[in-house]
Design a protein around this nucleic acid. Structure first.
Lengths: 342, 342
DNA sequence: GCCAAAATTGTAAGCGCTTACACTCTTCTT
DNA sequence: AAGAAGAGTGTAAGCGCTTACAATTTTGGC
């Protein structure tokens, strides 16, 4: 196999009998190219198997043809799902996806503002997944010239898609309440320290609102801080079991915490819904397996939606519409860990 | 905020009082640069916050500074884990990670040989995670000029890291056998149609070998084909329960299939280890949760190891050592789904 | 049919970097 | 102490593409 001469736009120009410039315009569907020329170019491209060099395009002031996805981690179910969905959209639109995982490092900022603003030379846009940014970071990013979109963020000056976290929590809590439970605990994710991610606090709000709707008040002892992980939920539930009175139902603000809660219960000879009803939010695939009642959120859809929004911005850079914020629907899924309180 | 003039190598050259060429060499640690010059350049770079444009570097014949990770999917636990580990290694070495998920499409080949060989203009190397390639595809890739490394592949002409699948299966099966079980079924992933991924068939071999070691033979009826997913395992186990005689122990060739098996059993009022002992391979985080006995494999380590191998190749392009194949250790983890057969 | 405006196409100058190759100093030889 | 070998540095020519702007062709109104 001989190291083939790279097929350049030059070759296409020669074969099609046009100038490089016209070919370039034809390739990018710019106006002012006759159909004839278009056809000739398409022909030559096909014949030659031409593929533009993104490096050259970029250097010359065009686009990089790639988009970065920034996520707190790539391993958690939610992010893996969203990343893959977004990657598909990007791929289908001809973009490469460069993945940046923050890996929960507190060096988020360093990453974002060292690498990422360095990244701005290498990508056309950025898709942020639940990345907790301070106001100044948001401002910097917005001013970076990059197209930006996000999933699960709040008050950001770019397109965002997510779910109504407060509503989802309200749905879950109301389900418990509707079942006759009035002695509820909540396993709540830790408050974020920054500004742009408010999932946990919104969910806590929803919990409170549901209680209020039933003329109940939130007892501080029954709001347990918990990491949004299996182990976090387990610890939180253990704490609840060991040091506090057992409620009749527990709302975990994500399924993984609910799993942990279930596990802790099992370790103490307790089970759901027999001793305590348990509900989560997410509809993690394991929830089905474990029969966990939950409020489902469309994860892949969120990633794909946001990705599409971003691609649209990139492809219609001219249309400067306002940043939009989209809420996708959540839905109560009643399974086996919740039941009527007698 | 003013749109800043891009800091170019030119600026560094001026500030350091050297020529562009010298700066370029200094930046890439090429020989023939005095320490003095090195220092000056380092200084200027720091002062200016200079970052090379990968597009320009690439175009001029240098490297892209990015590496592609190709995986069958990004959502499965195993891949998400490996991807993140590799991404970390790449990031620490200054490479961008471009993610390509095949999403189980049968268009694997199209992807690989359209996109990927197109990718070769955009990346320096490729990390393949369990990508099943035909011989000709392997040859093409090997001849592409890209640096390549892989995880979980067999007979490939580049660095590979994985586990000894046959041994892992042997460990799991021997555990069952050692517990006094002799009536075993195996839930085995479908055979691959290509050449470079042989996980399932190797694991089946290990199963057979363990039986042979105990002077037992494999009964064809007890080799159940199963997708390596929860649902696959569930279906396979259902089949076993419905149409065949129930063995005293089941070896699922991956944890997710084992989960499915456990689920099917539960649906039939059966449980492990009471009615049937169950063991898997992987040590998925849920296995701990479910008390599933399994043979643990170091997933993140495999990704990181392979990534390091790849980075090494890229950074020492001069040292043309033979491609190496590394097996990482697997370890039996006995939990609650297996017990002595009385 | 004739001329200006509009549509189409071509020319040429870079984008920021790498890389032969040429050049200037240092060191050693002998 | 003069010249050769080598270390360190500079010059300049691209890499393949985009993009003003200039040149050419087409179109249409009279």
């Amino acid at each position: 196999m001989v190291k083939a001469h790279r097929v350049t736009i030059q070759d296409v120009a020669v074969l099609s009998g046009l100038s490089i410039c016209t070919v370039s315009r034809a390739l990018r569907n710019l106006p002012n190219v006759s159909e004839k020329a278009q056809a000739k170019v398409a022909d030559a491209v096909a014949k030659l198997g031409y593929k533009a060099s993104s490096a050259a395009a970029r250097l010359a002031g065009g686009n990089t043809g790639s988009i970065a996805i920034i996520a707190p981690t790539a391993t958690a179910w939610f992010f893996a799902q969203a990343v893959e969905a977004a990657e598909e959209v990007f791929g289908d639109s001809g973009f490469d996806t460069v993945l940046v995982s923050l890996r929960g490092k507190s060096s988020v900022k360093r990453k974002i503002f060292g690498d990422l603003l360095g990244l701005s030379q290498r990508v056309d846009g950025v898709l942020l997944l639940n990345v907790d940014l301070s106001e100044s970071e948001v401002a910097l990013l917005a001013a970076s010239g990059l197209a930006v979109a996000s999933v699960g963020m709040t008050s950001v000056p770019w397109d965002n898609v997510g779910i109504d976290d407060e509503l989802a929590a309200w749905q879950a809590t109301s389900h418990l309440l509707g079942l006759g439970h009035w002695d509820l605990a909540v396993l709540s994710g830790r408050e974020t320290r920054e500004n742009s991610v408010r999932t946990s606090s919104d969910r806590l709000k929803g919990f409170s609102r549901a209680l209020k709707d039933h003329h109940l008040t939130v007892h501080p002892d029954l709001v347990i801080n918990s990491d949004s992980t299996i182990d976090g939920g387990r610890k939180a539930m253990n704490e609840l079991i060991a040091h506090r009175s057992l409620p009749t139902a527990v709302f975990a603000d994500c399924d993984e915490a609910a799993f942990g809660a279930l596990m802790a219960m099992r370790e103490h000879g307790l089970s759901a819904p027999k001793n305590v009803s348990v509900i989560g939010i997410d509809d993690h695939p394991m929830s089905w397996f474990l029969g966990l009642s939950t409020v489902a959120q469309p994860v892949a859809d969120q990633g794909a939606f946001a990705a599409n929004l971003l691609v649209d911005r990139l492809q219609n850079a001219d249309a400067p519409n306002e940043p939009s914020n989209h809420f996708l629907d959540t839905k109560l899924i009643e399974r086996k860990t919740t039941r009527r309180q007698r």
